[in-house]
Amino acid sequence: MWGPYLMRRFALISIPYLWLLALFLVPFVIVFKISLSDIALSIPPYTPQFDPSAGWPGVTAFLSDLDLENFVFLTTDDLYWRAYLSSLQIAVTSTVLTLLVGYPLAYGMANAPDRWRPTLIMLVILPFWTSFLIRVYSWKGILAGSGYLNQFLLGMGVISDPLTILNTNTAVYIGIVYTYLPFMVLPIYAALERLDGSLLEAAEDLGCSRKSAFWLVTVPLSKPGIIAGSFLVFIPALGEFVIPDLLGGSKTLMIGKVLFEEFDKNRDWPVASAVAVILLLILIIPIILFQRNEQKQREAEQ
């Protein structure tokens, strides 16, 4: 029989293990299974339903009813195509924009006097603790047709007609850059902070101008931070739902939104599940690349 030590070890491993199996892995298997089913007018609204009481013939009948029809459907209806492509395009564009906004900020932080830095880091992290939803919502008042930005620009005489920004893709870019900025700034800051200042002095001594020393020394050495930050923005941005829903318009196509609507309004669970499966397949590539970058950095540090 097992001693108390093994019993305890077994309990320690199996409790979190079973929890994750039941509430993370099993739900996934269900999504995958439903993506191979057909929509039906029943409760729940798909067919075939698994019926364990029918025994082995029931299992084979169930398996033979599963097919890839929903995935074929996704390739025929160009809504899904365009939604995947437009999600990719929005995620890439906003990642580049976040880098352009985040790099100077991280650079400024890394070159600030030492006693300032803890405060600056806290100021970057603080918004991260405030509600994501509220931060996205705060842009609604700014970007609306009669919002603060238009009032300001009209008042200054810069424009004569209000700009239409809310409910366009531009608003979605702004929302993503704003909410994910800390994810970009912190890894770049970490890389820049480690940078050895004597390298820059050496470059300047050897006749490099400050500008080319920045491009030839600083930027390449902060590359791991840039890569990590870009993935940390790109991966969640691709499946984003709240930002396109609140700031985007009816023309903004993002896959998270399509999935939600497929489920909520059309109640087509099999197609919603198929959309989810494809989104996961697309995400696997950047996730593996990100893991590899982290691994390489860890090895470099040792």
Partner: peptide, 23 residues
């Protein structure tokens, strides 16, 4: 086990939500 610990961190919320609802 370690896969199930790290995967939810990068999983899009819509997928986590959908899968739990279906469960």
């Amino acid at each position: 086990f370690s896969g199930m610990i790290y995967a939810p961190l990068v999983m899009p919320e819509v997928i986590t939500g959908l899968s739990l609802l279906l469960l």
